[in-house]
Design a protein around this nucleic acid. Structure first.
Length: 562
RNA sequence: UGCCGAGUAGCACAAUUGGUAGUGCACCUGACUCUGGAUCAGGGGGUUCUAGGUUCGAAUCCUAGCUCGGCAGCCA
């Protein structure tokens, strides 16, 4: 993690940790953990949690484990484990210990036996339906299970036989004996173990009983002696249960602290909904560049630095806020502005012929790689008698504030020459197909010795040297700020134009050496990167993703004009 | 019903133990003059939900009220 990262705000979680350290709690030791369930891909919301957990450990000289919360074999897989490992590393974090809740199955079983022996847990033969019915409601207490007072020895024997596979799936469960009248429904004799004959990605078929999250999570924290167990708000009501287990079993007193998960405008963040988008083919996969997943963002061109800076900037609180998507974009712009090499690319080419250019002549001109960073050096760009300009950079009948090319007008071609448009060539339909221009040899490099000014500098690409590329322009996946608001079906708010493919873009030849994972600024347009899945530069297949556009004040100005 | 959280600028959010209310977007102005769709600088804009209270001092603490949101699975 680079030292240039923004200082994280001192949020309420850090305040708690700082207080504990100052008070000498746990000898001043700080231990956190990031506990994903391997049932899907990580998204920016997880990045927030990762930055929080690993960040706090770093700041307080502590440690952060990566622990997979793999207690539900039916939804989990090795594929997800691998992707999560990769994403956490890519974000720039290194875990102290790599653990799996499934590693603790034997010990968790032992703790359950202890609870039974202490008369604090029992085997219940009620069905899931019955348990649900007897739990009571928000306003009424629940009823005691008829099996609640079974003798300890019988519970022990039954639990042992559950493990041994003597009962069918879902037939009986182990429950804690707490309080069926508690206003907190989580304390109404919660289930600790259920029977599921499912193949587990790590323990295989060794177990047919699996612990529930509530039972497994806190004990796993305690086993690792996690001092601060940071999770999201929906677990707040579970905290009394979390503490009950640690107290009754007599384990390390890990402390659970809840914060608000990340929400972003113009997207959805739940794994379930993201999965729905993948399965319904609205997107091409979990790594579709429009997805808020870590993989999607990476493929889109986001950098770990930008993501970390974003997380530091938004801070953490207990308020379920919705962060403006532009703040994510700004974090990327800020990062890439400092270090992305500049290149020229014409997305919608309009051919230009320089009439007074010596036939067959080619010049290689110096072009600065990054005006923000002199150490980035220069490159050479070829200039010949035919080139491409952006169609939008020419107007035959320009409105008042249009400063770019028009008949009779002179503009500068970046790093090259001043050119003047002399005529327009149209086809039978009256469409402009080509421009005729002249260049001023005295303006080589872009300065005119007589000091005359031009109002615009345009990007361009030499026609005979141009690479042809596919460029994918992305917009928000959803057309409204809050896709889940005011509708039962969030997909009705999908933005039909979230992907625009430009198939005949022209690139300056140096882009043939573009590398996957590097962001380039296409001047005056935005930041782009090679698509890691579909591009193959060695086979001359160039596919670029627009990571984020440059701020667009011209479009705004135009809008203002009406 | 219980627990928790939130009401702050047009919008979305901040504000370390009580000490001149900040950030992004939007808006306005200026600088640069080889990204005029980049970048940088500056500016306008708030009775901090209401009513009381504590205090030299309250967005922050207390009381009452109003409004809104989250959670309540043999998922995690």
């Amino acid at each position: 993690m680079s030292s240039s990262d923004a200082d994280p705000r001192r949020d309420f979680v850090r305040a708690i940790v700082a207080d504990d350290v100052a008070a000498g709690k746990h000898g001043g030791r700080v231990q956190t953990r990031f506990p994903p369930e391997p049932n899907g891909y990580l998204h920016v919301g997880h990045a927030k949690s990762i930055c929080l957990n690993f960040g706090i450990a770093q700041e307080f000289g502590g440690q952060c484990n990566l622990r997979f919360d793999d207690t539900n074999p039916e939804k989990e897989s090795e594929e997800y484990v691998r992707s999560i490992l990769e994403d956490v590393r890519w974000l720039g974090f290194q875990w102290s210990g790599l653990y799996y809740a499934s590693d603790y199955f034997e010990r968790l079983y032992g703790f359950a036996v202890k609870l039974i022996e202490d008369g604090k847990a029992f085997v219940d033969e009620c069905s899931a339906d019955e348990i649900r019915r007897m739990r009571g409601t928000l306003t009424q207490p629940g009823q005691l299970s008829p099996w609640r007072d079974r003798p300890i020895a019988e519970n022990l024997a039954l639990f042992q036989r559950m493990r041994a596979g003597e009962f069918p799936d879902g037939s009986i469960v182990l429950r804690a004996k707490i309080d069926m009248a508690s206003p907190n429904l989580n304390l109404r004799d919660p289930v600790l173990y259920r029977i599921r004959r499912a193949h587990h990605h790590r323990t295989g078929d060794a177990w047919c009983i699996y612990p529930t999250y509530d039972y497994a999570h806190g004990q796993s924290d305690a086993i690792e002696e996690v001092t601060h167990s940071i999770c999201t708000l929906e677990f707040e009501n579970h905290r009394p249960l979390y503490e009950w287990f640690l107290r009754e079993i007599g384990l390390f007193p890990s402390r659970q602290i809840e914060f608000a998960r990340l929400n972003l405008t113009y997207t959805v963040m739940s794994k379930r909904k993201l999965l729905q988008l993948v399965q319904s083919r609205v997107v091409s996969g979990w790594d579709d560049p429009r997805m808020p997943t870590i993989r999607g963002l990476r493929r889109r061109g986001y950098t770990p630095e930008a993501l970390r800076a974003f997380c530091a900037e938004i801070g953490v609180s207990k308020f379920e806020s919705v962060i403006d998507h532009v703040r994510l974009e700004n974090a990327l712009r800020e990062d890439l502005n400092k270090r992305a090499p500049r290149r020229m690319a014409v997305l919608r080419p309009l051919k230009v012929v320089i009439e007074n250019w010596p036939a067959g002549h080619v010049e290689w001109l110096d072009a600065v790689n990054n005006p923000e960073d002199p150490s980035a050096g220069k490159r050479l760009v070829p200039f010949a008698g035919e080139l491409y300009l952006e169609r939008d950079d020419f107007q035959e009948d320009p409105p008042k504030k249009f400063f770019r090319l028009a008949p009779g007008r002179e503009v500068r071609l970046r790093w090259a020459y001043f050119i003047t448009c002399t005529s327009v060539v149209k086809n039978a339909q009256g469409e402009i197909v080509e421009l005729r221009c002249t260049y001023d040899p005295a303006t080589k490099g872009g300065d005119s010795p007589d000091g005359r000014k031009v109002k615009a500098t345009l990007h361009w690409v030499s026609a005979p040297h141009a690479l042809t590329a596919e460029v994918r322009l992305y917009d928000h996946l959803f057309g409204v700020e809050f896709p889940e608001q005011g509708t039962d079906d969030f997909t009705t708010n999908l933005n039909p134009n979230s992907l625009e493919v430009v198939r005949d873009a022209k690139l300056e030849p140096s882009l043939a050496e573009a590398e996957i994972g590097v962001g380039y600024q296409f001047e005056r347009q935005g930041y782009f990167c090679l698509d890691s899945a579909d591009a193959d530069p060695r086979a001359k297949r160039y596919v670029f993703n627009r990571s984020v556009s440059l701020k667009d004040s011209w479009a705004k100005a135009q809008k203002g004009e009406g």
